[in-house]
């Protein structure tokens, strides 16, 4: 290697050095530390001894872990629903109905507001004296005016509604991008050949944006594992009991609200990390394919 080339390489390396350094210290080191600490009885103060897999074994024997995991899987209901609604919205936007740009911006609005603010709005709306119950009483159905956030099924229902509501716009915009990359002449010639709306939808549109749907599906599933914290915190606070606690909320709960359970919190964090890593690998493969396909 000539001196000039070596100098150029050094400059390149210096260019990526800040990014790599930040990621090493603030991403790689903490992840390594979490994995190591999950194998100890760390309590944040005195104890810090290696205890092997005992944290994991203890977690797997608790009821709240399985209940939390079950909650995560119940929350998944939001994914297919938001995808279907998002798809319908994108198809309607694609038809370029008058005002479609305005509606597109409007539907995206919840995405730019903090999830906590949306969560608090939902909590206020579904509180016992809140507007939803007020409406129900006004509509002559006072029996339906219940403590929405006080029981597991309705509380989970409220959270899922919030998740769908906040994501419809994102799904719509994403799918619209997929639709826009389809050559319109395909639809034109199908129309000429007499294909009706449903035939066009099921035989042309869905297969052609299948990759976008796959991508969005995996992304949303991963998001359901990691992004629910602000919603749970503001709407139900995980309660009653562990009834609406999700895995990401549980990690916070164990690490920052209950002292002396840090080893266990780290083990929970590693479980969460493992789930998300697998999903991310899937997603990267899919989005690579989606990219090469859309070019």
């Amino acid at each position: 290697m000539t001196d000039r080339k070596r100098k150029e390489l050094t400059i390149s390396l210096l260019g990526i050095a800040p990014a790599v350094l930040v990621l090493l210290v603030f991403r790689a080191y903490p992840i390594g530390s979490v994995i190591w600490n999950s194998l100890t009885n760390w309590d944040g103060l005195f104890k810090h001894d290696f205890i092997g897999l005992r944290n994991y074994l203890r977690i797997f024997r608790t009821d709240y872990f399985w209940k939390t995991l079950a909650n995560c899987f119940i929350m998944f209901i939001n994914v297919p629903i938001q995808i279907v609604i998002g798809l319908v919205v994108s198809m309607l936007l694609y038809e370029k109905t008058p005002g479609w740009r305005f509606f597109r911006s409007l539907y995206y609005l919840p995405q730019i507001v903090s999830a906590v603010i949306v969560g608090y709005l939902f909590a206020i709306f579904f509180s016992y004296d809140g507007p939803v119950n007020e409406l129900l009483r006004f509509a002559g159905a006072p029996k339906l005016a219940i403590e929405w956030l006080g029981r597991r099924p309705t509380a989970i229902g409220v959270v899922i509604t919030a998740l769908i509501w906040i994501n419809i716009g994102w799904q719509g915009v994403l799918m619209l991008g997929g639709l826009s990359s389809i050559n319109p002449s395909v639809f034109e010639s199908a129309k000429m050949d007499g294909a009706n709306f449903f035939q066009r939808t099921f035989y042309i549109l869905l297969p052609m944006i299948g990759r976008v749907i796959e991508y969005s599906f995996i992304y949303s599933v991963a998001w359901t594992f990691t992004g629910l914290f602000p919603f749970i915190y503001s709407i139900t606070n995980g309660g009653p009991g562990y009834d609406t606690t999700t895995l990401d909320f549980l990690v916070y709960q164990k690490a920052f609200r209950e002292d002396s359970a840090l080893g266990e919190a780290c083990a929970l964090a590693v479980i969460l990390l493992a789930i998300v890593s697998v999903l991310t690998l899937f997603q990267r493969r899919l989005s690579d394919r989606a990219n090469s396909w859309s070019e």
Partner: peptide, 13 residues
């Protein structure tokens, strides 16, 4: 790949 590492994990350390 590090894009989707959840913050809950890195925050404890």
């Amino acid at each position: 790949f590090s894009m989707f590492m959840p913050n809950q994990v890195t925050l404890i350390p």
